[in-house]
Every structure is written in C-alpha cells, then in structure tokens.
Amino acid sequence: MTHDEPGATAWVWHGGTDFRPTEFPLPSPGPGETLVRITAATVCGSDRHTVSGRRSAACPSVLGHEGVGVVVSTRGGRTVDGMPLAPGARVVFGVTRACGECALCQRGLSAKCESVQKVGHEPFDGEWPLSGTYASHILLRPGQAVVTVPPEVTDGPAATAGCAVATVMAMLERAGDLSGRRVLVNGLGMLGLVAVAAARERGADHVLALDFNSERRALAHRLGAVAASPAEGATGTVDVALELSGAPSGVSTCLAALGIGGTAVLAGSVAPAGAVDVDPEWIVRGWRTITGVHNYEPRHLQQAVDFLTRDPHGLPWEEIIGGPVPVGQLAHEFSGHDPGRLRTMVVM
C-alpha cells in the first residue's frame, strides 16, 4: 500500500543523553504490518533508567514504548478484537511483539514469547529500526496488539495505555475479584495511581496506598485511598496487595499485610534488588498466593483503553503528565526531569 507522507525521522539514542535525529524513507508495510504516524509519546521511568545507565539496552536504538498515533497505511493489520485497521484510525499498541507459535504463546503467555521483540528495545541497525515511539513513525508488526482510541481520551493519557495502564489491568486480573475487598497498593508512581483508581472502580471496599512521597500520597487520597507513609505501615490485614515499588522492603510490607486467603501481585521488581524471606508454612497455613506480572496480554491493552475511556475516579492527568515537550528536546528532558511529574508527554 502506498502513502503520501514524507520520510520518517527517528531520534536515535546513542548512549547517555545523546539523541540524534536520523532521517530515512518510510517503510512500506509487509503482510500484517501497519505504519503509524506518532502524535505523542510519554516518557516511562524505565527509559530514564536506560539513559542513566541503570538498565542495559540496545544502542543505538529508538527508545520510547508508550505512544499514540494515526494509521498511515496497513497490509491486513487488525485490532485486538479482530476489526480491520484503516488509514486515519487513531491507535495505541502493545509493547511486545509475539510469534504466536511457541509453547509460551500457545499457553496464553505471549508477553513472555520465546522470540519476543519489544517496542523501544530493538537495535536501530536490526530488522526493526522503527520500533520506538521517539520518532515520527512506528512500524507495527504482526503479533503486536493494536487498539483504537476514542477521541475523548486525549493523547497524553492514551499513550500510557501501552505500558502503565495495561500492566495494571494484568495485575488486577491476577488479583481476582476485588468487590468488597481490602486492597493495599505499595508504590504510587504512574502504575500505583492507576491501580488505586482501578481498584476503586472494581469495587474495593478499602484501598490503602503507601509511598514515601507526600505529593503522591495526596493524589492517591483524592482518588479515594487512605494514604500513608511506608514507615507507618499497613494497619490490619488486606485481601490483595499490589506491589509496584520494586524495593525489597515494599515486597516485605505487602506480604506481611496479607490476611488469610490473601493474594500479593508483584510488578515493580523488574531489576535485581535483593532477596526477600518468605516462610512457606505461613503461605500454606494461610492459603496465601504470591504471583508476578511482567508486561501483559493483548486483552489487557483493550481493557486499558476501556478504563481510560470511563476514567470513573478522574485521574488528575494535569498533575501526572508534564509537557508537552518537543521531541528535539529529549536530551534536556532526560537530564533535567521534574521529579514531581510521573510522565512527560513528547510531541513530534
């Protein structure tokens, strides 16, 4: 399928805060592929870890994995619910591209596909150069979730669907029915605040939110949580604990708070941080469950967009997302980030 747009520009990361604009012809989609013009991206904390050297990544590469855009052209691309894509559709997309054929994909664990590729993680000189959101365009590949976005979900919140919000949807699925339950959310970054709002929407009777940052606790309180510092700890026991800080102390806090039959879902522990002691007898006699979530399945991306469309508890996006920042100022954004903002919107 042809397209009338000019060439693509990608702000290729070469290490540190070195982002270089690189121009090249737009690719023509192959079978099952879709070319999307990026309208906005949001800067995730994991990209900050990459740029600061805390996390290894392909270099050079096009970073960024939270984004929203408009379909330019497609060859048989479809949405998660099976609808054909067409030029002009406004979409968000999954962070992983799965083969659909390996044993893990067949088990419904496509997020951990044996040959998984990830948006914003692939080498620029590899087979998928236009794989990140810090670019004018991204080429979506077969096996990658795509969901259309209604106009009432603006670009900043929409972009977060592809990582933060969809991951929370996967966590809540693992947690089970929250109706009438007591829920603990530990760590009030982007995912934690979404988790508070989503738990409230799903009928949690009581949500306790823990974070050392007083401003984030205030946001959680506005969303209907009882907010406290981790130093104060959890009062009483909870039915579900959602751990998003990644700190061993946070994991221990969540486990210690679990009542009989309780479930802890860990999602913040995505880097080595040290071991946590667990007493097997405590798990067995208490019918407790400890599980983890890393990335998500296609259905969770659809659930994320649905949640953002409803947004029942009014997430304070004006306080969560800073910017917009022109993509040409990425180096400055990564060197001078305002820690009070959980996301920064980048525009092309």
Rank of each mutant, 00 (worst) to 15 (best):
T2C: 12
T2G: 15
T2A: 14
H3I: 10
G7W: 08
G7P: 02
T9W: 09
A10H: 08
V12P: 05
E23I: 08
F24D: 14
P25H: 05
P25V: 01
L26A: 11
L26T: 11
P31L: 12
G32L: 07
G32H: 06
I38A: 00
A41M: 04
T42R: 06
D47L: 03
R48L: 14
R48W: 13
R48H: 14
G53C: 10
R55A: 13
R55N: 04
R55Q: 14
A57Y: 10
L63V: 08
G64R: 01
H65D: 02
G69C: 12
V71G: 01
G77T: 05
V80K: 06
R90A: 03
V92N: 09
G94F: 05
T96K: 09
R97V: 15
A98V: 10
E101Y: 10
K112I: 13
K118Y: 13
V119R: 12
P123S: 04
F124Y: 13
F124Q: 03
E127K: 12
E127S: 15
P129R: 07
L130C: 10
S131Y: 04
G132S: 07
A135L: 10
R141I: 02
R141C: 08
Q144F: 09
P151T: 11
P157I: 05
P157T: 01
A161R: 08
G162T: 14
A164P: 04
V165F: 02
T167Q: 02
L172W: 10
R174K: 15
A175P: 00
L178W: 11
L178V: 02
S179E: 14
R181H: 03
L184D: 00
N186L: 11
L188E: 10
M190L: 08
L191Y: 00
V194T: 09
A198Y: 03
R200F: 01
R202T: 00
H206Y: 11
V207G: 06
L208K: 09
L208Q: 14
L208G: 00
A209W: 06
D211N: 01
F212E: 13
E215H: 13
E215D: 15
R216S: 01
R216H: 05
R217N: 08
A220W: 05
A225G: 02
A225F: 04
A228E: 07
A228H: 07
E232R: 13
G233P: 05
G233S: 05
G233E: 04
A234L: 12
A234S: 12
G236D: 04
A241K: 02
L242S: 03
S245I: 05
S249L: 13
C254M: 09
L255C: 00
G259Q: 07
T263P: 03
T263C: 04
V265S: 08
A267F: 06
G268Q: 08
V278H: 10
P280Q: 10
V284N: 15
R285M: 14
R285E: 13
G286P: 02
I290T: 07
V293M: 01
H294T: 11
H294A: 12
H294M: 09
Y296S: 02
E297Y: 01
E297N: 03
P298E: 11
H300V: 08
L301S: 11
Q302T: 15
Q303P: 10
V305K: 00
F307P: 02
L308V: 02
T309S: 12
R310S: 15
D311M: 08
H313G: 04
P316M: 06
P316Q: 08
W317N: 00
E318R: 14
G328Q: 01
L330C: 00
G336D: 15
G336L: 09
D338M: 01
G340N: 13
V347G: 01
